[in-house]
Amino acid sequence: MSSIDIPSDVLDAMAAPPEDREPIVRQELAVSLYREGYLSFGKARELAGLSKAAFHRLLGDRKIQRHYKEADLALDVAYGQD
């Protein structure tokens, strides 16, 4: 598993409690990558650490249009079988 190194001074600069900072970064990254089409819904949800319903709500709150295609379905089905 790869990881992204976020400088501690960047995390410390976030106006959020320390225990919320990593989840916020993961969710923001997941939403952005999904919105731009770099990640499927399933992978973005996984990155965000949210359930399907919670990630749908997050995208809805942000008014982000879903772009689920047949290819995404195939990837999600294949991933679910692993």
Rank of each mutant, 00 (worst) to 15 (best):
Met1Ala: 06
Ile4Met: 02
Ile6Trp: 09
Ile6Tyr: 10
Ser8Trp: 03
Ser8Gly: 02
Ser8Tyr: 03
Ser8Thr: 08
Asp9Phe: 15
Val10Arg: 12
Leu11Gln: 07
Leu11Lys: 14
Leu11Ile: 03
Asp12Gln: 14
Ala13Val: 02
Ala13Ser: 15
Ala13His: 06
Met14Ala: 07
Met14Glu: 10
Ala15Lys: 03
Ala16Leu: 15
Ala16Pro: 04
Ala16Gly: 00
Pro17Tyr: 13
Pro17Cys: 04
Pro17Gln: 15
Pro17Val: 00
Pro18Gln: 09
Pro18Asp: 15
Asp20Pro: 01
Asp20Leu: 12
Asp20Val: 09
Asp20Ala: 12
Arg21Met: 04
Glu22Cys: 07
Glu22Gln: 11
Glu22Met: 10
Pro23Val: 09
Pro23Asp: 10
Pro23Thr: 04
Pro23His: 05
Pro23Lys: 03
Ile24Val: 07
Ile24Arg: 11
Val25Cys: 13
Val25Thr: 11
Arg26Val: 09
Arg26Glu: 02
Arg26Met: 11
Gln27Gly: 12
Gln27Ala: 14
Gln27Trp: 04
Glu28Arg: 07
Leu29Val: 07
Leu29Ile: 06
Ala30Arg: 00
Val31Cys: 00
Ser32Met: 10
Ser32Tyr: 10
Leu33Glu: 13
Leu33Ala: 13
Leu33Tyr: 03
Tyr34Ala: 01
Arg35Tyr: 06
Arg35Leu: 06
Gly37Gln: 05
Gly37Asn: 05
Gly37Ile: 01
Gly37Leu: 00
Tyr38Glu: 10
Tyr38Thr: 01
Leu39Gly: 09
Phe41Val: 00
Phe41Ile: 00
Lys43Met: 08
Ala44Ser: 10
Ala44Met: 04
Ala44Val: 00
Arg45His: 01
Arg45Gly: 02
Glu46Val: 11
Ala48Cys: 07
Ala48Pro: 06
Ala48Gln: 06
Gly49Glu: 04
Leu50Trp: 08
Leu50Val: 02
Ser51Arg: 06
Ser51Phe: 09
Ser51Leu: 10
Ala53Phe: 06
Ala54Phe: 01
Ala54Asn: 08
Phe55Met: 02
Phe55Trp: 05
His56Met: 12
His56Lys: 12
His56Ala: 08
His56Val: 13
Arg57Tyr: 00
Leu59Thr: 09
Leu59His: 10
Gly60Leu: 03
Gly60Glu: 14
Arg62Cys: 03
Lys63Met: 14
Ile64Leu: 05
Ile64Met: 08
Ile64Ser: 08
Gln65His: 02
Gln65Ile: 00
Gln65Trp: 02
Arg66Cys: 06
Arg66Trp: 03
Arg66Phe: 11
Tyr68Glu: 08
Tyr68Leu: 10
Lys69Met: 03
Glu70Val: 13
Ala71Met: 07
Ala71His: 09
Ala71Phe: 08
Ala71Ile: 09
Asp72Met: 09
Asp72Pro: 05
Ala74Ile: 05
Ala74Ser: 12
Ala74Cys: 07
Ala74Glu: 15
Leu75Gly: 07
Asp76Cys: 07
Asp76Leu: 12
Asp76Ser: 14
Ala78Cys: 02
Ala78Thr: 11
Tyr79Asp: 11
Tyr79Thr: 13
Gly80Cys: 00
Gly80Ser: 06
Gly80Gln: 02
Gln81Ala: 14
Gln81Ser: 12
Asp82Phe: 13
Asp82Cys: 09
Asp82Arg: 13
